Simulated scan of single mutants.
Amino acid sequence: MVEPVNLKEHIEYSTGSVVSRTLKENRAGTITLFAFDAGQGLSEHSAPFDAVVQVIDGEGRFIIGGEEHDLKSGQLIIMPANVPHAVRAKQKFKMLLTMLRA
């Protein structure tokens, strides 16, 4: 990807769904854009790598190691490797997930 990307406009919401779009993937990690409709989420899971989440539109709830964090547009949080986490959409929201495999 060589051209600038407007992240808010690069993915659309879908009623009753979570939509994802991988922007870049290589051995170092992945960069994935997500759009969550209100009430949607990702169930609790863990990953063997640190991950950085940046909320780019709306507001989402992140449960990391049993602690709830409500993030809104412009905020980010780091999800540590091997710590269970889940995502819930209190309202429609979009996020950028950067997974670091190093």
Rank of each mutant, 00 (worst) to 15 (best):
A81S: 13
V83G: 01
E68P: 05
T98D: 01
G39E: 04
A35M: 06
V83E: 04
G66E: 06
L71D: 03
S43C: 10
I56K: 00
F93M: 10
H69Y: 07
F34L: 03
T15I: 13
P48E: 10
K90Y: 12
E68Y: 07
T15W: 12
T32K: 11
N6R: 15
A38S: 13
K92M: 03
I31N: 04
L96T: 07
R27S: 13
M95D: 09
M79E: 03
K94M: 00
A28T: 15
E9F: 05
R61D: 01
L71E: 06
T30I: 10
V55L: 02
V87D: 04
I63S: 08
I64P: 02
A35Q: 02
E25Y: 09
K90S: 13
G60E: 00
Y13N: 02
H85D: 06
K24A: 15
L7Q: 02
V2E: 15
F93T: 03
Q91F: 07
F49G: 09
L7A: 05
S14I: 09
S43L: 13
H69D: 00
R27M: 12
S20K: 10
A51D: 00
F93V: 06
V52A: 00
A38M: 08
E12M: 08
A89H: 02
E59H: 05
L7W: 05
